[in-house]
Write a protein that binds this DNA or RNA. Structure first.
Length: 143
DNA sequence: CAGTGTTCAGGAT
DNA sequence: ATCCTGAACACTG
């Protein structure tokens, strides 16, 4: 199946996606972009009309590298709720700092909801800025 | 080897 | 109850 790219607006940001069928290869945020095709469910999600992104898959969870195990656990945290780096680490059999690294290098944010992972004592970090992380969490809470 | 989107216990305020 | 420290953790480039 052919690789397709497109973008969709989310508040102040643009979400750029490259995918092939139901397999999402890459997702990134940017401050610019232009309206294009993105998978339907993802577009609905970004408008707050869809809570289930499990129809998608991504190569990032496939191999047996340590990160893949972490990504699988993270995918299981439900819409609208959060987990801590420590909880994820225990479930994946690794250390919280590694979870941090895995989140930072997450190739498919949203599909792997790294924004739902917060620090034990606060909000934690986010590659694209805390503001975006909070916006995503706020949107999910509202539904 | 240094550096990480961390955590926890311990001690001081 | 809240605010520092400091050390350890597993993995990556």
């Amino acid at each position: 199946m052919a690789l397709v790219e497109g973008a969709c607006r989310f508040g102040l940001w643009w979400v750029h996606v490259s995918w092939s069928g139901s397999v999402i290869h890459h997702v990134r945020f940017a401050t610019s972009g232009s309206e294009g095709t993105v998978p339907d469910a993802l577009r609905r999600y970004l408008r707050g009309r869809e809570t289930d992104l499990s129809v998608f898959s991504t190569p990032a969870t496939d191999d047996d590298a340590p990160y893949a195990a972490i990504y699988r656990v993270v995918r299981a945290v439900p819409y609208g709720s959060t987990a801590t780096y420590g909880e994820i680490a225990r479930a994946a059999g690794t250390h919280p700092r590694v979870v941090g690294m895995a989140m930072k290098r997450n190739p498919v944010p949203l599909i792997i909801p790294c924004h739902r992972i917060v620090a034990a004592g606060g909000i934690g970090g986010f590659s694209y800025g805390i503001a975006l992380k909070e916006a995503l969490l706020a949107m999910e809470r509202k539904k």
